[in-house]
Design a protein around this nucleic acid. Sequence first.
DNA 1: CTCACTATGTATAATTT
DNA 2: TAAATTATACATAGTGA
Lengths: 178, 178
Amino acid sequence: MARKRVKLAFIVNQTQRRKSYKKRKMGVLKMLNELSILCGVEAGAVLYSSFEQGPVVCPSVEGMQQTIATFKNMPDFAQTRGMMNHDTFLDDRFLKLGTQLLNLKTVNRVTEMALVMFQILQGHQLNISLSSEDLNDLGWAINLYLAEIEKKVEAIMKNSSIPASAPTQGGPSTSTNP
Amino acid sequence: MARKRVKLAFIVNQTQRRKSYKKRKMGVLKMLNELSILCGVEAGAVLYSSFEQGPVVCPSVEGMQQTIATFKNMPDFAQTRGMMNHDTFLDDRFLKLGTQLLNLKTVNRVTEMALVMFQILQGHQLNISLSSEDLNDLGWAINLYLAEIEKKVEAIMKNSSIPASAPTQGGPSTSTNP
DNA sequence: CTCACTATGTATAATTT
DNA sequence: TAAATTATACATAGTGA
């Protein structure tokens, strides 16, 4: 019943780890959502866990689709056409429209964010793994390490006679918007 | 002194919002880091705020660079060369090597995550903003809305005689690893 | 596994310096 | 404006159905 002080280390017990992951995922996504709303910040995240088929992407694609669908199916939307002018600019219905459009802009902004993230990390990856002769030792160590692992895997495979299979790759699962 | 129940809405006061952003950013990044360590999950995030020059990227590029630097400068690393075999595979020094290599793998994994995120959102963006005639109304509304905003901005600019300036674009700032 | 509950550590809004 | 403080709401580890 008591929540012991959490030790910041990998949770070895798989069941326990899975539980913790589920709860904390919810927590992080909720807080990210709150940060986004409260502070007017575009916030995106990706979680890549072994517990789920694909990466968890936030903000969720489904959430954004719902936003669009809501906008498209907004009652009286057709009636709004043709009655837009300065007098109706601050009309409630039009303000709602604005909110929805801001959400639409968010989609584009998040895409842009992801691109930035990708470019930054890609550039970083190139710097450390491809560039100069400074990393010869690193490359050598990697190869040796992987070779050792390969040997171990081969040995295990021979003994257990389980055929090697391509990893199952499911579609990405998106988080439900909190 | 008391923390009032938080109302989930955009904080209008800029000073207040800035404060909240700083604190909550720390919190979210910390929790993301914890989730990553506790549950063995690759977690990446991007924050795009008006409070900082560029996007905040997590895990931090600097943090990863430090990992690499540590690895490269590891004492006795040169001595390890040539003494790797099955007997020394579980040697302490080599286990450390493995940990560092896992971190290196994390770099690549995060890059991959970002790419997935980008592709998913890119695809989604195209679906909703470019594709079919279903969205004619949406496009029409956007144009009208933007035109109205433009008029307002023009009016404000004329009255205040403040010249329009290109937004300053700084380099990306990376979060410090907690 | 999933939900529900509860005790408790943590994050953070409000306030002061 | 930023840092330190404090009181409180919230997240979540542990537990049971």
